[in-house]
């Protein structure tokens, strides 16, 4: 296999690996821009993955799976909202709690309902799973050098959720920066007092932001269990929620940057999977564990302000107390 082909295959798996990150990081974007920190992305994604796979297996439809994934994820997002908006609880603590509840519940319910050691039944390709979409002419021009290969391997042949993820990026940008809702959402994350003074409910606005987070986390989970894999396995998010969080910070809370950050982290993952250890000729071997740790290391370095500066929304993490 030529170097070009290898490279395109790596890019192809980069896309696949970065989709759940992209959904989850965009999900976190809504919440954090509204001033609600969310380290429960992981848990919401996991619960959604389970709900999606379980519903898809029972009803035999990927779309019903997606619907349940989104609903369950919204449910958990509302718990987070109830704790951190209504009861002004600590947002970090609430996020941690949601991660644990999701991790435990998915396995317990999975075992009780399906008796396959916490797995859900494998999904077949006929309708109960999001399958690859062949774009027109993909087969026909696959012979054309470079362009054909890029088109047929990289652009064509993904599930509908992949294309939706890439559409979600400009859509999120549009919502946040070109609509009244987005303006208010960003304002509530910077200065909730001002928003309140303008006669807009901080509580309702933040709840809506948290619901948006739930919806997108649902997509992230459904992608994992109903599109990328054929069913749910225990702890299948494996820290992706936290990498998404890292990507969100790495992207400095901006939608288009989020896409590139997720692609970068997905690329690192793809390379780590492809090459067990990368040899830098004559020098040393980069262990695969280093590649896996790289997203986290990069985020720490960025947060410390060594490469640019990541400034979070000003009111992030603080519950809003209305003056009385």
């Amino acid at each position: 296999m030529g170097a070009l082909e290898t490279f395109i295959l790596i890019l192809d798996s980069t896309v696949r690996l970065s989709i759940p990150l992209m959904f989850a990081a965009l999900a976190g974007l809504y919440s954090e821009r509204a001033g609600i920190f969310d380290i429960g992305l992981e848990g919401k994604m996991l619960a959604a993955a389970f709900a999606g796979a379980a519903a898809a297996a029972v009803y035999g439809s990927a779309w019903i799976g997606l619907f349940f994934a989104v609903m369950v994820s919204i449910g958990l997002a509302l718990v987070h909202g109830f704790a951190s908006i209504t009861h002004r609880g600590n947002q970090i603590v609430s996020g941690v709690a949601i991660n644990f509840i999701a991790a435990g519940t998915t396995v317990i319910l999975g075992q009780a309902w399906f008796r396959q050691g916490g797995r859900t039944p494998p999904l077949s390709a006929d309708g109960s799973r999001f399958t690859a979409i062949e774009l027109p002419f993909a087969e026909a021009i696959s012979g054309v050098p470079v362009v054909g290969l890029v088109y047929s391997e990289l652009i064509s042949g993904h599930s509908i959720l992949v294309y939706l993820a890439f559409l979600a990026v400009p859509f999120t940008w549009w919502v946040l920066f070109r609509t009244r809702f987005g303006l208010r959402l960003r304002a509530v994350g910077e200065n909730p007092g001002a928003v309140d003074t303008a006669g807009i409910s901080v509580t309702w606005l933040r709840y809506r932001a948290v619901i948006c987070t739930g919806i997108l986390c649902g997509f992230a989970g459904a992608y994992l269990s109903v599109a990328q894999n054929a069913g749910f396995v225990k702890d299948m998010t494996a820290g992706k929620g936290f990498i998404a969080l890292a990507a969100l910070i790495f992207a400095k809370w901006k939608p288009v940057n989020v896409m590139f950050a997720c692609l970068l982290f997905g690329f690192l993952d793809a390379v780590a999977i492809r090459f067990a250890g990368i040899e830098i000729p004559g020098l040393f071997e980069v262990p695969p564990q280093f590649m896996q740790a790289l997203p986290y290391i990069l985020t720490v370095v960025l947060l410390a302000g060594f490469i640019g500066r990541a400034i979070p929304p000003k009111a992030g993490g603080q519950p809003y107390v209305k003056e009385r």
């Binding site: 718990v79 109830f82 704790a83 951190s84 009861h87 609880g89 600590n90 947002q91 603590v93 609430s94 941690v96 709690a97 949601i98 991660n99 644990f100 509840i101 999701a102 991790a103 435990g104 519940t105 396995v107 317990i108 075992q111 916490g118």
Partner: peptide, 19 residues
């Protein structure tokens, strides 16, 4: 399974911490 503990742990963190 033992994952029940994880749920209890999460619920304790939720009710004793966030709520």
């Amino acid at each position: 399974s033992r994952d029940m503990i994880v749920i209890i742990q999460g619920l304790v963190i939720l009710f004793a911490g966030a709520l």
